[in-house]
């Protein structure tokens, strides 16, 4: 845009912090996520002016105000559609959608699945706290069955969505999960999402201190998390447990937990292959299963040509075939007569 391009000085985290006071509840998991995003931004190799953060409505959707990048705080559920327009207008931009379990999966569920299927090169960070925070504590599309909330005093009778499975079903090409408290891991995921060409869907478990405190504590508390979290790494065996003594094995068409106690060989443990969609589906099935660990990391990753790329190609092709559009010729095409 600027006429004189000089090599910009290296950016740091503070270059991505806006001058606006952050107004989340003290102790909210959103702070940790914001901090990780601000931390990785300078490492992406993208000029700051090319980064756009777009959100809908909800606690997490205040995010763009706190990023010193271009930002758009949209309306409820529509961030993905807004982001699509931005990306198609300027495919050079690095577009980040910030959404939540209500914004992205309830009111914005339709736009979410269509963005995933179209595969525009956009990164979606879905903050999942399994509750409605900004409206003060109603159950969300990811709250568990039976959840007692302000709007479900007798327990919710809604079955929850399983976000990675929904994204798989919508033909998502990059599907991952992180946790607000797992900061290093989250940084890695965010960078990976950025390098994926196509729609990246990153679910981030996020603690809501006020309305759903501790809902992920089994995955975050030091004493228990190793027993409950399976960290997926491409090409590595699916091993978990404090002593790395448990693994996942494929038995028929199901996963099962095996004890690695010397009798069962490590050779039986499934190796994670993030390009294997069926395996990703099996892993996503573990989301709500009690006797299994919760997987985090990249479930699935496949490079498929993006919508934005195909759009540019089509425009180039049309110009090549028909020549650059000529307005006068367009006006005069077909039968004309002169008086």
């Amino acid at each position: 845009m600027n006429e004189v391009k000089t090599k910009p000085a290296a950016l740091s985290k503070k270059d991505f912090i806006s001058n606006q006071e952050v107004r989340w509840c003290p102790g909210c998991g959103d702070y940790a996520i914001l901090s990780q995003v601000q931390k990785i931004m300078p490492e992406l190799g993208v000029p700051r002016e090319n980064i756009v953060v777009i959100s809908g409505i909800g606690c997490s959707s205040r995010f763009p105000y706190y990023m010193n990048t271009y930002g758009f705080h949209g309306i409820h559920g529509r961030a993905t559609a807004l982001a699509s327009g931005v990306k198609l207008t300027n495919p050079e931009l690095s577009v980040w959608v910030i959404t939540g379990d209500g914004d992205g999966l309830a009111i914005g569920g339709n736009h979410m699945i269509h963005l995933l299927r179209r595969n525009l090169d956009i990164n979606i960070l879905l903050f999942n706290n399994e509750i409605y925070g900004l409206t003060k504590g109603q159950y969300s599309p990811t709250s568990e069955l039976g959840k007692v909330t302000k709007s479900s005093p007798f327990g919710s009778i809604d079955y929850p969505f399983n976000p990675p499975q929904l994204a798989l079903g919508a033909a998502g090409t990059f599907i991952a999960r992180g946790i607000d408290r797992e900061q290093k891991h989250l940084q890695g995921l965010l960078k990976h999402a950025h390098t994926h060409t196509g729609t990246a869907f990153v679910e981030i478990y996020q603690n809501c201190l006020i309305f759903n405190n501790g809902v992920f504590s089994h995955l975050t508390e030091k004493e228990v998390k190793a027993e409950n979290v399976l960290v997926l790494e491409h090409g590595k065996p699916m091993i978990f447990g404090k002593n790395e003594d448990k693994g996942l094995r494929l038995n028929g068409s199901h996963l099962e937990v095996i004890q690695l106690d010397g009798k069962t060989s490590h050779d039986h443990v499934l190796i994670h292959d993030e390009t294997n969609k069926i395996q990703a589906l099996l892993l996503s099935e573990l989301t709500y299963l009690k006797d299994f660990p919760t997987p985090i990391g990249v479930f699935y990753h496949q490079d498929v040509e993006t919508y934005d790329h195909m759009m540019i190609k089509q425009i180039d092709y049309a110009k090549e075939q028909k020549g650059e559009g000529n307005i006068e010729a367009l006006f005069h095409e077909g039968y004309t007569w002169t008086v």
Partner: peptide, 14 residues
């Protein structure tokens, strides 16, 4: 418009 250096700003419905 996004892509313009040193003019990053936020906008929204509030």
């Amino acid at each position: 418009v996004p892509g313009t250096a040193n003019m990053e700003y936020r906008v929204g419905g509030l």
